[in-house]
Every structure is written in C-alpha cells, then in structure tokens.
C-alpha cells in the first residue's frame, strides 16, 4: 500500500515540478550561450534579463518546494482531501511516510537542479567531459581512496536525516495546530518555533552529561563516526516527531 501511496504522491509532485525543473535547466542552458568570461575572468552576460530570470526560477523553485511540502500535508491529510486519504484502507503511518519520502525527494531533486544548473551554464567543454579517460581517472582516484565513497554516502545520509527532521517538525507543528479549533495556522507556526527551541535545548542538555560527552568523543573520533553520529542524533527526534504525528492523526483527527 505504501508503494501505491508513493505512486500518487510522486505523480502530484511531477505535475507541479516538472515545469519548474525543466524551466530552471532550460534557462541554465540558454544562459550558457549568453554568459561569458572576460580576460580578467569576470562573469558577464549579454542578456541580464535571462540571468535574472534564471535566478528567479531557482528562488521560486525552493519557495514552491517548501509550500509543496506544507500543502501536501495540510491539505492532503488535514484538509478536505483528508476525507479521501483517511478512508483509504491504509494505516496513518503509511500516509505520513509517503508524504515524507516524497517531500525529502522533492527537496533533494530541487537541490540537485540548483547544483547542476551552474555546471550547465559554465563554459565547460562537454565533449571533453564525457570522454572515457576523464571518468577513468576519476574512478581510479576513488578506488585509491575508497573511504571517500563511504564519506560521501554518510554525507548523503546526514543530509537526508536533516531534511527528515525538518519536514517531521513541520508535520508535527501542523498536526498540533490541527488540535485547535481556531487560529490553526498561527498555532502551527508557534508550534514549529517551539519545536525548534525544544530541540536546541534538548541537545544542549543531553550533550552536557559527561557520560554522553565521553560517548560522543569516542563516536566522533574521525570523520566517518562524526557523520554517522550526526545522522543518528538527527533521526532520533525525527522518529519521535513522526510517531507523535501518526498518533494525532490516528486518535485526534477532526477534519471539520
């Protein structure tokens, strides 16, 4: 059932973002032919408007991505669409997990588009870049230092964990707001700020214990351990928040 839910969440994401991702990449490609460097290596463009449009699309993409995550949860599970979603033969955690996975993937893809676009714009020689020797050298370099791959994987995990915590706090804030009959949005914003303060204080207090400090010193003795520790310490509160969201949806849902 989770896969079926994901299918519809990803379809909704594609409907909304295919155009904006396409526009960002297309504008980056167009700018590749209008942006150039002078002798002093300063970037110039013979079409400032196109460059400005590209910047606007990138900023808009991230703003829409945040709105997307908020709306998919608030309208999809706490609004009128909830009458459909909560009567499907699935568990609440499946509904929440599907939205969460879709939200994280959405933000990651937006990040990838924002990172890839400058490379498309840069006056790189693509023919050279796609030659086999270049990739062969890169592969050989990685094989000499396999730890780099592990570190990259851990970095990705830490990024996913951070995004998960951020989205989970947004979900919990909206779910808490939903418990109130009036001023739900205002309460949600207050709850989000409250959760941020709570996490900051909690981390500060937990890490001040000498036992925890010793454990942390051992775990973060090298970069590998540091990344994993960062992921774990981020995922634990995220899991607690998501459990709270599921409990609220299961027991305190009121779509009126």
């Amino acid at each position: 059932m989770l896969l079926k839910l994901l299918k519809y969440d990803f379809r909704a994401m594609w409907k909304q973002f295919s155009l904006i991702w396409g526009a960002a990449l297309a504008l980056a490609l167009v700018n590749r032919f209008t942006v150039f460097r002078d002798a002093g290596n300063n970037v110039h463009s013979n079409s400032d408007l196109l460059l400005f449009a590209f910047m606007c699309v990138i900023v808009a993409m991230f703003v829409i991505a945040i709105i997307f995550v908020v709306n998919r949860f608030s309208k999809g599970l706490l609004g009128n669409e909830g009458y459909l979603m909560h009567t499907l033969p699935v568990r609440s955690w499946q509904l929440v997990l599907s939205k969460l996975i879709c939200g994280v993937v959405n933000w990651v893809v937006c990040g990838v588009v924002a990172l890839v676009s400058p490379f498309i714009m840069a006056p790189l020689n693509w023919a050279e870049l796609f030659q086999f020797p270049v990739w062969s050298d890169i592969l050989q370099g990685i094989m000499k230092h396999p730890g780099t791959l592990v570190l990259m994987a851990e970095f990705c995990l830490a990024t996913f964990s951070f995004l998960t915590l951020f989205i989970a706090s947004m979900y919990l804030a909206m779910a808490v707001g939903h418990l109130f009959s009036r001023h739900r949005r205002l309460v949600s914003v207050a709850a989000f700020i409250g959760l941020y303060i709570l996490i900051a204080n909690l981390y500060e207090r937990v890490f001040s214990y000498s036992g925890v400090q010793s454990l942390m010193d051992m775990a973060t003795a090298n970069a590998y351990g540091s990344m994993l520790t960062a992921s774990a310490t981020t995922l634990i509160p995220a899991a607690v928040f998501l459990a709270a969201v599921c409990w609220i949806l299961e027991n305190k849902l009121n779509l009126e």
């Binding site: 459909l84 033969p89 568990r91």
Partner: peptide, 25 residues
C-alpha cells in the same frame, strides 16, 4: 481499521479531491 475501510464506501458531505486530477485519475 484498514479492513473495515476496505469494505466501506463513504460519500462525505463535501468535495474531497484535488482539482488538478481528472475523474479517470
């Protein structure tokens, strides 16, 4: 729970679908 939801067909007193969808969706 999920079983009872699979045998219940519910018509609410309001619209519950996203506007961007088609009936076939």
């Amino acid at each position: 729970g999920p079983y009872t939801k699979s045998v219940v067909s519910y018509l609410p007193d309001r619209m519950y679908f996203a506007d961007w969808m088609k009936a076939t969706d």
